[in-house]
């Protein structure tokens, strides 16, 4: 079966997110005074085959550990969706 692993990667707490900071300031400058904090990360979408959702999630976790995420500076979250053709 085909699954989509939707992976969000974002800076860990305590790591200076220069982009997020700059965008936060810019939002403030153009009038969004309610903005407290901005974080900028990336979205990775992997289309993969697996026998069930659990296997898809395990595979995606492993991909994150091996390559997609550097856990020294990044956190991540994974959402698995089945692709219905």
């Amino acid at each position: 079966m085909n699954y989509l692993a939707k992976i969000l990667v974002f800076p860990r707490e305590g790591v200076l997110d220069t982009q997020g900071k700059a965008v936060g300031k810019a939002l403030g400058r153009i009038g969004f005074s309610s903005v407290k904090d901005v974080k900028i990360g990336k979205y990775i979408q992997v289309n993969l085959e697996a026998k069930d959702e659990k296997e898809a999630e395990t595979a995606a976790e492993e991909m994150c550990r091996e390559l997609l995420v550097n856990d020294l500076v990044e956190d991540h979250s994974i959402r698995i969706e089945r692709i219905v053709l």
């Binding site: 790591v15 220069t18 982009q19 700059a22 550097n70 020294l72 500076v73």
Partner: peptide, 10 residues
């Protein structure tokens, strides 16, 4: 050890 992140000047 460590990581190299984007310059603070962006």
């Amino acid at each position: 050890p460590g990581a190299l992140l984007a310059n603070r000047t962006l």
